[in-house]
Structure formats: structure tokens, C-alpha cells
């Protein structure tokens, strides 16, 4: 196993542990926004769309770049916008959590 691969694997395992730890019990009103927020974060795959663009040199690959960029951009733009809107609902009536609960 190469040095880079080992480093990546270590980062992967430790990040998994961070993910498990950072997520303690959250109120049920926040479950959907949290799901949506996490969904927006994996939109970071857009970085991958940029990265493969550097290697594309024929039509089939250009098409793949287009779709990777399209899909990832929808994920990022939509994910953050809709999460922000959902969380905006908490701003409107602060302290009135019981109503938002159901």
C-alpha cells in the first residue's frame, strides 16, 4: 500500500469516527434540516467534477464532466438553499418550539 493511500485511509476512518461522535441526540424537529444539511455537505463532490475536467480529452469524457458538474451543482445549490429556508422557520418564532414540534 502506498503512503498516500494509507494516509487517505487513515483520514477516512478518523472522519467516520468524527461523524459518529459529532452527531449526538438531536431534537426531532431538527432531524429533517439535519438530513438536508448533511445532504448539502456531500455536494462537495462538485470538487471532483472540477478535478476530472482536467483529464477530459474526448467527447465521451466531456459528456461525463458535464453530468458530474450538473448533478453536483444541483446538490450544492439546492441543498444549501433549502436547508437555509427550513432553518429560517426557526427564526420566525423563536422560543415557540412546541408548535414547530408537530
Amino acid at each position: 500500500m502506498s503512503q498516500e493511500l494509507y494516509a487517505n485511509l487513515a483520514i477516512f476512518v478518523l472522519s467516520l469516527l468524527v461523524g459518529f461522535e459529532v452527531m449526538s441526540k438531536i431534537p426531532s424537529t431538527l432531524q429533517t434540516p439535519m438530513m438536508s444539511g448533511a445532504n448539502a455537505i456531500h455536494g462537495v463532490v462538485v470538487v471532483g467534477a472540477f478535478a476530472i475536467a482536467a483529464e477530459a480529452n474526448n467527447w465521451f469524457l466531456y459528456v461525463l464532466v458535464f453530468f458530474a458538474a450538473l448533478f453536483a451543482a444541483i446538490n450544492v445549490a439546492g441543498g444549501y438553499t433549502v436547508t437555509d429556508r427550513m432553518l429560517g422557520m426557526f427564526d420566525r418564532k423563536p422560543g415557540d418550539k412546541k408548535e414547530a414540534d408537530k
Binding site: E4, L5, N8, I11, F12, V13, S15, L16, L17, V18, G19, F20, V22, M23, I26, Q31, M34, M35, A38, N39, I41, H42, V44, V45, V47, G48, A51, I52
Partner: peptide
């Protein structure tokens, strides 16, 4: 999240690995 983390291995980019694994684990707990 996991798929994105593996994509990070593929293009050797750590931010994809970290964010993907984070979402994979946090999403599982959620």
C-alpha cells in the same frame, strides 16, 4: 456520503474523503 468519500480516494482529494465520511457516519446515526 460514502460514495463521495470513495470518489475522494479515486481523485486523491482529502476534502471529499473527510466530508463524505462525515456525512456517511453522521447520516447513519441520524
Amino acid at each position: 456520503g460514502l460514495a463521495v468519500a470513495f470518489a475522494g480516494f479515486v481523485i486523491d482529494n482529502q476534502v471529499l474523503i473527510i466530508a463524505g465520511a462525515l456525512v456517511g457516519a453522521a447520516g447513519t446515526i441520524l
